[in-house]
């Protein structure tokens, strides 16, 4: 049977593989090579060693963006996951209309990043207009604006995953704890949280990588203003490529650094939370 299928290789595998190579594999390898060169188009690259990397780290915009992204990621991962988990706890109680609430909380997630950015730009500027300023007045406005936006977008999504996890907690364990006289808080900490650890892993992973890679929302809400103070990594890399002359090599070096950070964060986080999961 394997032989019969193998003969159909061109039909089954080739379309996907060709597309995958053109849009991912080849650009990825070229990207690593180009980060060590000076280039305008990919065909006229000149080897310059690691000077792109040193330039990238000397670039105050890049360091600033890195720092801004890290702060933003920490704050939004914590707020999103805590609120989403609490909401999921509420919605797994016997409360009327859980379905309707679930529908409402999830909806913002379907709206794209660009549109989300402009919705919140209007609201935040509206609130700030009472103080006669706008979101570009201070970097901290942009920061908290992005945090609020991200919460609004992702809470519903994470809540859905947490609800599935909580509904999966074995009722026997909870009943046993009841008989032993455990309080609700003890049950939550000792039973529910360890049991939903797989959901916590997934949700932290998703919020972490999504916050770190944020681009559309950043572009629409502040576009980096004031100056480049609210520029996150993805936007800074984009601007290095397309906004500066002769900086493509540095942009590519920044992108490689960005990739390494994302990969390290993602893998460490998966490893750490996985090790806390209990075998059910």
């Amino acid at each position: 049977m394997q032989k019969a299928i193998k003969r159909w290789f061109p039909l089954f595998v080739l379309p996907t593989v060709v597309a995958f190579i053109i849009s991912f594999i080849a650009p990825f390898i070229m990207g690593i090579y180009l980060s060590f060169t000076k280039f305008k188009t990919v065909s006229n690259a000149k080897w310059v060693g690691i000077s792109n990397y040193t330039k990238a780290f000397q670039d105050s915009d890049f360091v600033n963006a890195l720092w801004f992204t890290v702060k933003f990621t920490i704050v939004s991962v914590i707020t999103i996951n805590v609120i989403a988990f609490l909401l999921a706890l509420l919605l797994t109680k016997s409360i009327k209309g859980t379905n309707l609430f679930r529908t409402i909380f999830f909806m913002p997630n379907l709206i794209g990043g660009i549109v989300l950015g402009y919705i919140w730009l209007m609201i935040i500027n509206g609130v700030l207009s009472y103080f006669d300023v706008s979101i570009t007045y201070d970097a901290s406005y942009g920061f908290w604006g992005l945090v609020i936006l991200m919460n609004w977008q992702l809470i519903g999504y994470m809540m859905i995953i947490y609800i599935a996890g909580i509904q999966n907690v074995s009722p026997d364990l909870l009943e046993a704890a009841d008989i032993d006289g455990a309080t609700n808080f003890q049950k939550l900490i000792k039973i529910t949280v360890p049991q939903v650890m797989p959901s916590i892993t997934i949700c932290t992973f998703l919020t972490l990588t999504n916050s770190f890679k944020l681009f559309d929302q950043n572009l629409a809400l502040t576009a980096g203003a004031p100056g480049t103070e609210t520029q996150m990594l993805a936007l800074d890399i984009y601007n290095t490529f397309y906004g500066r002359v002769d900086y493509q090599g540095v942009g590519q070096a920044k992108a490689v650094v960005f990739f390494i950070i994302v990969a390290v964060i993602a893998l460490t986080q998966l490893y750490l939370t996985r090790s806390k999961e209990v075998e059910s």
Partner: peptide
Amino acid sequence: LYLLCAFSMIVPFQMVMYPMTQVASNLKL
């Protein structure tokens, strides 16, 4: 192929953005 597919999920778009755009326009995509 399977491992490469799994790997591609953690690579941010900015990493391949510039070369990909050039490859795509060379191939008239």
